[in-house]
Design a protein around this nucleic acid. Structure first.
Lengths: 216, 216
DNA sequence: CGGCCACCGGTACAAATGTCACAGTCACCC
DNA sequence: GGGTGACTGTGACATTTGTACCGGTGGCCG
């Protein structure tokens, strides 16, 4: 528990940057934590696997950087990022995700994230990105940024997103209507609108391209 | 190259176990490699990100253990495992996958894998599993094994799988027919059969449960 | 050989899906 | 106050999808 690891003097140590790690896949989480622990100027002070735990534990441990996955059980890393910016403005947020979806990047920036990393790319990038973010820089893959700009903003309305999200698993119109508390006819209208806006031919294609762009 | 690491006598040296690592996600691959490198009785002698590279590089470096992801660009880790068993019988195969699908486990065992790990669960499990596999043990999560047994074998025929796989992205019957070179009527028959066998209500639900069980 | 099953196709029908036109409410902004 | 757009709903219509039943081929096995 007690942490006097070799440091004998120096009133305030404050050399290591404290990192909070939010990632649901156990092996990935463990490996990243171990990897960051090897850097002698960093320390993983908290690991969570659920999006709902991010804010509470962050308030507790007061990290310098929060490394957040997007797809998490509980609330998404993007939502957590926005909350975190409000509650701990001095804490930098670095999004780490599997998919470089344009809409994700856009939402991450709107949520006040300082950086956006994809899980491809070499591991060395990670520690480097943390240091750059800490120095006040923004870390974004240029190619991804271009894609996000060219893709434009999310064309779907709130309801269209809701309905489309409820259709992902192959639910029927009646199912969706039940889940979203709407009339089946209205559901079909929204689906038709979403299909039109995405330029696709049926709801599953619409779901697919909406997903690909990070619009859900 | 030469390996006389402290051992003075003993005709066979063979202290470090050589590991081949196949994983498409760069950060995960790098982190795992680094992690295994920390173990002083292991060495990652090759890393590949494409399923097609597994067999050639394995023939080249002759690893003691191959750690294979299933979902890879190129051929799947399961297919590669089967080939590997044929070409290098002395090389143990350990499957490492995101999803603990019953059908995956079954196919892994049929392909001659010695172990099956999911990417949840702690990192310590990994090195431990490699050692156990090397000792001749089989490494399988008991709960997963039970699920695989209770789920039973894949009920879908080859053609049903083909057609269902061609339907994953929301393709129409005509699209599928084109891809698989079949009559639209035949495609609908196969789809109907797949829907019936999976106990679902439409093609997307059928795709979903077939995926979940590792039947694709 | 006869049975079984995978494979391939056709037809006809019922249900679900996608499209379109229309209509009302509400909020927001010029 | 009028315009705009999101939201909610209806009804009619064409298309697609899912089901049922039919037929034929070929391979494998008892």
């Amino acid at each position: 528990m007690s942490e006097t690891t070799g440091v004998t003097e120096g009133t305030e140590v404050a050399e290591v940057t404290k990192v909070l790690l939010a990632e649901d896949q156990g092996m990935m989480r463990g490996a990243l934590a171990l990897l960051l622990g090897l850097e002698d100027d960093m320390e993983v002070v908290a690991q969570v696997s659920n999006g709902d735990e991010i804010l509470p534990t962050a308030k507790d441990v007061r990290p310098d950087v929060a490394l957040l996955d997007i797809e998490l059980p509980g609330r998404s890393g993007l939502d957590a990022a926005a909350e975190l910016r409000g509650a701990l403005p001095e804490c930098r947020v670095l999004i780490l995700t599997t998919f470089g979806r344009p809409g994700y990047l856009r939402r991450a920036m709107e949520a006040g994230a300082s950086g956006f990393l994809v899980k491809d790319g070499p591991v060395e990038e990670l520690a480097a990105a943390i240091r750059r973010v800490l120095a006040g820089e923004r870390v974004i893959d240029p190619a991804l940024a271009a894609a996000a700009l060219s893709a434009g903003p999310n064309p779907l309305t709130q309801r269209e997103r809701d309905v489309l999200a409820a259709a992902v698993d192959g639910a029927t119109v009646a199912d969706i209507a039940g889940r979203v508390h709407l009339s089946p006819a209205t559901v079909r209208n929204y689906l038709s609108a979403a299909i039109g806006k995405t330029g696709t031919r049926n709801r599953m294609e619409a779901v697919r391209t909406a997903r690909q762009n990070g619009w859900l």
